[in-house]
Design a binder for these strands. Sequence first.
DNA 1: AATAACTGCAACCGCACACCT
DNA 2: CAGGTGTGCGGTTGCAGTTAT
Length: 320
Amino acid sequence: MGRAPCCDKANVKKGPWSPEEDSKLKDYIEKFGTGGNWIALPHKAGLKRCGKSCRLRWLNYLRPNIKHGDFTDEEDRIICSLFASIGSRWSIIAAQLPGRTDNDIKNYWNTKLKKKLMDMTMTSQSQRKPPAFPPSHQTPFVTLSSLYKDCPSYYTPTGSFTAFEPMSSVQPDLLNNESPTFATNSSFIHTSESLMSYIQYYPAKENFLMFGSGEPSCSSSDGSSSHISYGREIKQEDMSNFQGFGASNSYGDDFKFMLNHGTNTRGEYVSQWIEKPSGYNFNKDLEEIKRLISSSSNNGCSDNFIDENKTEEKVMYYYY
DNA sequence: AATAACTGCAACCGCACACCT
DNA sequence: CAGGTGTGCGGTTGCAGTTAT
């Protein structure tokens, strides 16, 4: 049985708000507040609207200090940085941009910023030089601590999951895709200068486990990552064909891999994220990952794209 | 000038979670 | 503890305005 609707759909008005409705809602909230009950509010305010609709109208349009209009470069940068690190958590991103609403940012991202980054990607791709791997130092645009400060209910100093989850929303669903669109869906991630560096390096500063050689490494910005432990390490022989790094949440049930394909024939650095679905069994599916990597470098978009001789693919993986 | 295609944005929908009883 | 309800969120839709043909 589905849940009851929040209001009587037949008796509520839908569609654009009239100036009269705006003024009724604004006046009521300024006088009496929301009363902590949006469902009852429209009736009290004399509006034939759903409570959710009133809430949305207030939060996105009527409440004081809402900023409309063009986004600044600084705002662009913050949005990109946060999107790269936490994904489409628009409300959290909005919390970092005073006066902007989550809806505003979401629309801006979907209609303009994403496109802008794509364009940047296309133009910069040919000029790109392969970065050192693993990276040594990289300063993030926004610190996780600021997120923790402003979003305590979502981020805690001991909860490491959030830094990784974001990537799922910007990655192709490779594990369920027979023919991953390697050069389209994910290209902006690994070729956009800012996003690339951010995704690739920033998490490593917090709870990201970076791999590539020798001992497992783990760092956090303040050295307080006591909750991180090393569990099941992939056998070295299993990793002989991969290079890259991965991350999981604190519960070990969500995993990301960055595959470092090396460079292609044009000397362009190529890498990609793939995601471990929940319930993933590493041992069983290691072959599947290899297959996907292989197929991703052989799909339509990558004809002559990857120089097989220069490509060294490894995934190193730690579970915690 | 007409209209098709595109773009931007406000609003809606449904889901998940928190809280209450 | 379970079920009901309200809230918040992200994804999607629909429409108005703009641009291209």
